[in-house]
Amino acid sequence: MDRRLALKQMALLTGGLALIPGCDFSEEKILAAYDELQITEGQQEMLKLLVDTFIPKTDLKGAAELGVHDFVLVMANDCLGEEDQTRFVNGLKGFDEYVKASFGKRFAKMDKPKAEETLLAIVGKEAGGDEDLEQYQYFLNTTKRYTLQGYMASEYVMTELMPYHLVPGPNFKGSKKIVAGEKVNING
């Protein structure tokens, strides 16, 4: 628990600093739900936007409307190691500026095709020792990984799209002929 405590103390410290007159960030509230991450509502919104870019609403529900961004933050908050967490948080905090500097436009201002293209460009680029780029690649890959996990293991997908059965029943067939064209259910 040492690290949690240290972070809390640090939060108190920076919180204290934030009260110093003239500080621009004083109105940006830190979200208590993700105590390890120390992120603001604006940053949460940014993550929601990213999650929605990865899995937008189509004929199917999108990730954001299922609240998957909250799952991504819960996992980043609780399940990442210290170093990875730092990379994730720094990635999230600096993302908008990084996109603006590299692509000439804030991510939030981009239309959907441009936003998708931008994410693919960042993730697909050879990092070649560019630590900044590596950090944002890590951030995006982690966000995508948790987005996929949260979406695929959502109630929506596991009941309506690929039904999961809590009580499958006693019949197990070790050898069942596949019917051509049948939909494959990964939870079946």
């Binding site: 029943g169 019949n171 070790g174 069942k176 002929k177």
Partner: peptide
């Protein structure tokens, strides 16, 4: 052409 059905 085969798979399994159910869990065990």
């Amino acid at each position: 052409e085969f798979t399994t059905e159910g869990k065990r």
